[in-house]
Simulated assay, not measured.
Amino acid sequence: MIKKNKQTIGILGGGQLGQMLSDAAIKLGYNTHIYSPYKNSPAFKNSTYQTIGKFEDQKNIDEFINNVDLVTIEFENIPLSTIEYISELKPMYPPPHAIKISQDRLLEKKFFIENKINTNSYMNVESLEDLSRWNFDKKSVLKIRKFGYDGKGQKIISSYEEAKNAFISFKNYPCLIEEFIEYTKEVSTISARDVHGNVYSYNPSENIHKNHILDRSFAPALINEKLDMELKKISSKMISQLEYIGVLSIEFFVSINQQTNQEELIVNEIAPRVHNSGHWTLDGADVSQFTQHIKAIIGLEISEPQLIFMTEMYNIIGDDIYHWSNIKSTENKKIYIYGKDRPRKGRKMGHVNFISRN
């Protein structure tokens, strides 16, 4: 049993998000306990306590629970049974029902529809027969319903034959097929809600992806005031409807409505956690998304975040680390290296925040 005289925040997952959450918590005066299946997890070296164990390991999970005061997550693809078990014994943020919705694209789409939030047309696919009922006159996207991220488990398709081959390559795993959106911009919001009912959003960011992986985020996004207000209104509605505590990220497409020829927002997906597109807040806002999340889940009142610098966030991917690891941060260029053991294609190794002080 770990002896402690101040609150310990348990964090499920040991990646860079857990690392930066742990940094924020410790700066606020709390202990952190990282639980991860991987012995080389980068968050371990930034935390007070560490446990190596599988998320299905009952003995290790029980010991972890006994040594923390509350629990949060750094990524959503954790067995729901583990999330629900922990939530029966310790406060869990975000709530399990929000994690459940975000884990399944079908539940996510139903949540959007039930709350009258604009999204693209879709259909559940559990068999080739289901797939045959979709209209392939327009370009579509086939996505596995669970455990997909950074473009994994999805494929753009233009015909039934392509869709069939993709479905088979996904080993007939339940999927969602949806219309492909011809967007003009991808934007996201980072919002937070605390136990006192306060809800605040950061300035939306515009996101550029390469090979389905976030490459750059620009904050604030270059959008008009109407879209900015609508993004914050939708985000506030969603986080409140979920009775959510902590930071929630929501990704949107900006598209041109063919009937009105006006810009419209189409929600793509939610992430029940701090997010890559919010890393700019470490230097471009007066409070980072990580500090905001910790304050919300610990029971403190959150503040409305203020933009202090226009910021471009650049992801350091794969072998790009060999270039950036030898460069030092400057006043206008803040470099964050995660300390992962080895680079590989598509792996996020760090990020850089370029700050504009004009």
Rank of each mutant, 00 (worst) to 15 (best):
Y202Q: 04
I223S: 08
V187H: 10
F180D: 03
E230G: 09
H209Y: 05
E243G: 09
S236I: 03
T189Y: 09
D215L: 05
L222V: 12
K210G: 01
E225F: 04
N211S: 15
L176S: 04
N257F: 10
A166D: 00
F252V: 11
R216V: 10
E251S: 00
K232W: 10
S217I: 11
I256C: 02
Q259C: 02
N211M: 03
K226L: 07
L242V: 12
N172T: 03
I245W: 06
E186I: 11
N203Y: 14
A221H: 02
A221C: 02
E179A: 08
H196K: 14
F170M: 13
L248A: 08
I190H: 12
Q258K: 15
V195W: 00
E162M: 11
I190S: 06
N224E: 09
Q258E: 15
I213H: 14
L248G: 03
S235F: 00
F218N: 11
E243C: 10
I250E: 00
F252D: 04
S169N: 13
V247G: 02
I177W: 08
I250G: 01
V187P: 02
S255D: 15
A219L: 08
I223K: 06
E251C: 02
L231H: 10
L176T: 05
A166N: 04
E182I: 09
E263T: 07
Y200P: 07
I181A: 01
F170Y: 13
